[in-house]
Design a protein around this nucleic acid. Sequence first.
DNA 1: CTGTTAGCGCATTCAG
DNA 2: CTGAATGCGCTAACAG
Lengths: 326, 326
Amino acid sequence: MVKLTDVARAAGVGYGTASRALSGKGPVGGDARTRVLQAARELGYVTDGTARALREGRTRSVGLIVPDMTNEFYTASAEVLQDVLRTAGHHLFVATTGNHPGLDQEALQAMAARRVDGIVHVPSGPAAAHQSPVPVVELNRYSGRQVPAVVSDDINGVKQLTELAVTAGYTDIAAIVGPETYSTSRDRLAGFKAAAEAAGFEDSPTAAKRFRIISSDFSVAGGSEAMTTLLTKPPQAVLPLSSRLVMGVLKTARAHGIRFPDDMALAGYGDPDWFEIWGPGITTFAPPLSEMGAKAAETLLDLINSEDIDPSINRLPGTIKQRGTM
Amino acid sequence: MVKLTDVARAAGVGYGTASRALSGKGPVGGDARTRVLQAARELGYVTDGTARALREGRTRSVGLIVPDMTNEFYTASAEVLQDVLRTAGHHLFVATTGNHPGLDQEALQAMAARRVDGIVHVPSGPAAAHQSPVPVVELNRYSGRQVPAVVSDDINGVKQLTELAVTAGYTDIAAIVGPETYSTSRDRLAGFKAAAEAAGFEDSPTAAKRFRIISSDFSVAGGSEAMTTLLTKPPQAVLPLSSRLVMGVLKTARAHGIRFPDDMALAGYGDPDWFEIWGPGITTFAPPLSEMGAKAAETLLDLINSEDIDPSINRLPGTIKQRGTM
DNA sequence: CTGTTAGCGCATTCAG
DNA sequence: CTGAATGCGCTAACAG
């Protein structure tokens, strides 16, 4: 692979001159500069990033750790995050954990070993032993570490979603949430309870205005099971609070011949593109995934360039999309 | 950041000894080894990958270049690809091009600059100027470069899909395909025509058994427009040959109150999870995305470890999923 | 303005 | 079996 000395020799200049010409830093004679640039182009010279990184003490690359690359919930953020970072000259290492907490630390280590300048992390579990020698910004979920986090304002979002059900006059509402180990589950649950209780609903089967909460995992199968459980005494409205839970609920409903909104009202969470064309359209709370990705990227860049960390949680507002199911 | 000399000093051994102990290569006394390992753990030592890469001439990282991280069509492959590579000790650089051909070369360059050991590339356009000094495997699409490619056997897949329509007795069939610049478009079109013509269909509005082909881009909007065009003289069966085209077709159909399969039969391509629960279930050809990802990873690893390239196209068979729309 | 030089941290020779 | 020394390719500081 052609290196700097080759370019310098071809251009008939010294080693350092070639370096300065290529990087644009430091004084170089206009004549020498053009000769170097031309030689570099002709030889197909590409700076050796490993050597440069070693010398400069930074790699211009950042890590992204997500539970699952096939989940639109993460990739929608990742896409714009990647875009913002690339514009700033950084490239992206990606690792997935499959929500298996052990892999978080492993990925963090691997990224640190590659000396990324920073990491955007969707933690797959409680803070625990997550440690990183490089700056970290949490995305989507916050683990409790003293690092900045960029998340969706699920508390308000789900609150508004629940108010939709209340306003529509339903008096028997059920929510399906994920494991409490995730901040997302806790936030969504908090939003739901806040709205329900504010409207005079109680967590009791005998109350006139009542709500139920079913805990599940964030999977399609979990949603299916939860819905099956609910169907022993069908609520008037169901709120599966993740897009995969929605999918599970729809599967079970389909098997039982239940129609939305005729037999039951439904409001979901997230906004994969098919929500719009499923049946009458699925009413949902759409978190601001793109904005979250951009904000996470900007926060990380700030962190990399300034060192002063503001370990606060940045909650970005999403949007209610009212469609046919509620 | 703690380095090797620190560990060596803490362990009371020499520099080289520490290196050998950590890497496991070369002779080290059992006693010295344990002292080094313990010191490393206590100090939180993490090998500096940039220095190691410079010295060893490889980074143990590979690049993945895809058009779009939010498209399940790519991420489903990427997920398992990432898994296979990680098991082999490699990590993944990801860049997206947005199907903007200029970015392909830019991404290729950036990856080369970072000295990745190899690249998995979903080319976003014709071969053209794509050049890379490191081994490349193409995924999903092949550009014509002399590199190995791992793709879905769309020719046969779409052929079978078309035969489904023929067998069902439809005599007016329309296919919606993407731009001819993509090998995927050409393959799917070839499969469609092969099956249609073999069954005696003609590309003529007056033939008893007739087919139509509408060219579009691979977007939701493109599918919508194509469907609108078709509706001036509705076919008995429509085959939008990408999941985004399916989405577009469904949107237009919905606006026109068309029901599948009652008013028109539909068979699609790809298998995002919502295909199963949309209406009566969408009949489709599902490419083997996971297998493709795994195969691409293995092919690249072979390439990295052996140098002898076999620039052939590996077509992996997919599966027909017959559901309700046809 | 230009050429020369010293490390960045590591793996790996070569002496001991 | 161990410690010291070399150089991977580059940038930055220095001397000319």
